[in-house]
């Protein structure tokens, strides 16, 4: 494992809506090491996207980062000024969103969108920027890159747009690339293209990749370590090859049992109930109303995230439970 490059400490990001305060991220902590592909996995409302937006400090209103620290190379990003942040965004930490349709500006060509990012951080001539843009398009394997430079986003297919979005994120060789559900809106065969591209880029560029997804399959394939989020807090952190065999949090086990598999038929075990309302989350452990192993303590006391041998888990009973994969 490389050095620690990013550390999120007790991050709290709340949304102040008319209906009440949505505690979207409520005390999330994890570390990211240089050169590793890290997965953040969770369902809607788990706080995985808000966590990534918080790292970039681009949480949209009415959301606000309430407390916590985000240490990037020894410096707390939450104490930086907006100007300093602008130099970090796109240059040091870049993000690829789920929906390339809305993250690319429909009014500008691919070239000008790439140039914009390149020239924002480097002092280069137009010609140099153009060469760099071409190089980037080749890197993300866009066929006929010269012609594509002049294209507008609507002239590209969904898969191509996502490639352009990835190229733009990589324009300044960022330290960290956050990919927020990069394949969710794409067709199956196009998903495969993007997964392969990200894997290839990650190993070639030794990139620190934070893969945010709800898909355990994608986690298994593209990451080395994984953070499991549930209802705005960390349930479990573990190396990917261990978590599928011996999970420590009942939610991780339940999630795996609830997902059908392509390679065999199995008995599906749905998780009862639904995702909790984050305005008024359950007391104690947030998973307790849906947990098969719940005891009184789970209802009363919020479990701490306990770190042991490169793993972490927030469950009162993890030592006595021996949870197994399928």
């Amino acid at each position: 494992m490389g050095e620690e490059i990013l550390r999120v400490e007790n991050l709290k990001t709340y949304f102040f809506t008319e209906a009440g305060v949505v505690k979207a991220v409520d005390g999330v902590s994890f570390s990211v090491y240089e050169g590793e592909p890290l997965g953040i996995v969770g369902e809607t409302g788990s706080g995985k996207t808000v966590t990534s937006l918080s790292i970039m400090r681009i949480v949209p209103p009415p959301g606000k980062i309430i407390s916590g620290r985000i240490i990037y190379r020894g410096e707390d990003l939450l104490e930086k000024s907006e100007d300093e942040m602008r130099k970090i965004r796109g240059k040091k930490i870049a993000i690829v969103f789920q929906d390339p349709n809305s993250s690319l500006d429909p009014l500008f060509t691919v070239e000008s969108q790439l140039n914009e990012v390149i020239m924002a951080h480097l002092k280069v001539t137009k010609q140099e920027a153009r060469n760099r843009a071409l190089e980037l398009l080749k890197m993300v394997r866009i066929p006929d890159p010269e012609a594509r430079l002049k294209a507008y986003p609507h002239e590209l297919s969904g898969g191509m747009r996502q490639r352009v979005a990835i190229a733009r994120a990589l324009a300044n060789e960022p330290d960290i690339l956050i990919a927020d559900e990069p394949t969710t809106n794409l067709d199956v065969t196009i998903q495969a293209q993007i997964i392969e591209l990200l894997k290839e880029l990650q190993s070639k560029l030794k990139m620190t990749l934070i893969m945010i997804t709800h898909d355990m399959g994608l986690v298994a394939e593209t990451t080395k370590r994984v953070v499991v989020l549930y209802a705005g807090s960390v349930a479990e952190i573990a190396p990917t090859n261990e978590i599928f065999k011996s999970m420590r949090h009942p939610y991780t086990a339940a999630l795996l049992k609830a997902v059908p598999r392509i390679d065999r038929r199995k008995e599906l075990k749905p998780i009862p109930g639904s995702i909790p309302n984050l305005i008024d989350p359950p007391s104690g452990c947030r998973f307790h109303p849906r947990c098969p192993y719940v005891i009184q303590r789970c209802i009363e006391e919020v479990p701490e995230l306990e770190f042991t041998d490169q793993r972490a888990v927030a469950c009162h009973r993890w030592k006595e439970l021996s949870l197994k994969g399928e």
């Binding site: 898909d215 399959g217 986690v219 598999r261 392509i262 390679d263």
Partner: peptide
């Protein structure tokens, strides 16, 4: 094309 939830596969 489908990723399988099994890192050893």
């Amino acid at each position: 094309a489908i990723p399988v939830p099994d890192p050893e596969r």
